[in-house]
């Protein structure tokens, strides 16, 4: 994948670090709680603690920092955009800079800082989840956690299956796109320059073959599943059972401490 190789956002990296070996459910729960407490906090020093927790988790995962941050490239733009919006549009408190009707005020700076920290911390923590959890474990975890909702008629198994198929086929589709792009480029297609119309026309040469192959794949997959006796959720057992270990216990205890601390110190 030469052309699309920057799309590494959250792609699973196999390894056997502490974080990799956690049960997906505890990772999910931790991420959820972390996101909530990060959002509710309004003390600058608490954000120092959250950043420390994040750095500690990253260390535990043994992933290379450069790789993690490269995968976040698409998010930078969003982050900078929100910071600028907050900086200029939130009014109140002391005025720092003033050019005509244009001003940066104390509350704006404060808000921009909080938003940046919140988004940044949560995005990195969530990419840590997908980087250290195989898609299989991820969807198994989701299915298990949503299990209780089956009683009220939510098609949990089907949702989890759809999700896992979607995740499974993202790299395949990217590869396919790359291959088709290369094939059309070999026939002189130019996706990089030219006007709007010529570029849109060039895209057709990618989109149509891509759709054709996606449908063919979907049909093949459905057929292969039926041929191997897939009949939905009923009576289906799992090859790999999820199980909690002492590691998950540690994470849960840590999580409770975190919630209590934030509850006490939040003013």
């Amino acid at each position: 994948m030469s052309i699309l190789q920057n799309f590494t956002l959250g792609q699973f990296v196999p390894s056997d670090s502490f974080v990799h070996r956690l049960d997906p459910r505890s990772k999910f729960l931790f991420l959820l709680v972390y996101a909530v407490v990060v959002f509710l906090s309004n003390q600058i020093w608490l954000y120092a603690v959250f950043t420390a927790i994040l750095i500690f988790s990253l260390r535990l995962s043994k992933l290379s920092l450069a790789y993690i941050f490269r995968g976040l490239k698409p998010v930078w733009f969003l982050l900078v955009f929100t910071i600028i919006l907050q900086l200029f549009l939130t009014k109140g408190g002391e005025v720092y800079v003033q050019w005509g009707w244009f001003s940066i005020e104390e509350d704006g700076v404060r808000q921009a800082f909080f938003i940046a920290m919140r988004l940044g911390l949560i995005v990195v923590m969530s990419s840590l989840l997908t980087l250290t959890t195989s898609p299989m474990d991820l969807t198994d975890g989701i299915e298990k956690m949503l299990g209780p909702f089956k009683k009220i008629g939510l098609p949990v198994h089907e949702l989890a299956l759809m999700l896992s198929i979607a995740i499974r086929f993202i790299p395949t589709l990217l590869e396919e796109t790359d291959k088709i792009m290369k094939a059309q480029m070999s026939r002189g297609a130019n996706f990089e320059s030219g006007g709007m119309i010529s570029r849109a026309k060039a895209m057709i040469a990618i989109v149509i073959p891509l759709f054709v192959s996606a449908f063919r794949r979907a049909e093949d997959l459905a057929l292969a599943m039926e041929a191997r006796g897939y009949r939905g959720d009923v009576g289906r057992t799992k090859l790999r059972q999820l199980a909690f270990s002492y590691r998950d216990g540690l994470v849960i205890v840590f999580m409770i401490l975190m919630v209590v601390a934030v509850g006490v110190w939040r003013v």
């Binding site: 396919e176 291959k179 290369k182 094939a183 059309q184 070999s186 026939r187 040469a205 073959p209 192959s213």
Partner: peptide
């Protein structure tokens, strides 16, 4: 390419 029919 390998399987060039996919580019039609």
């Amino acid at each position: 390419f390998q399987y060039p029919e996919h580019q039609l």
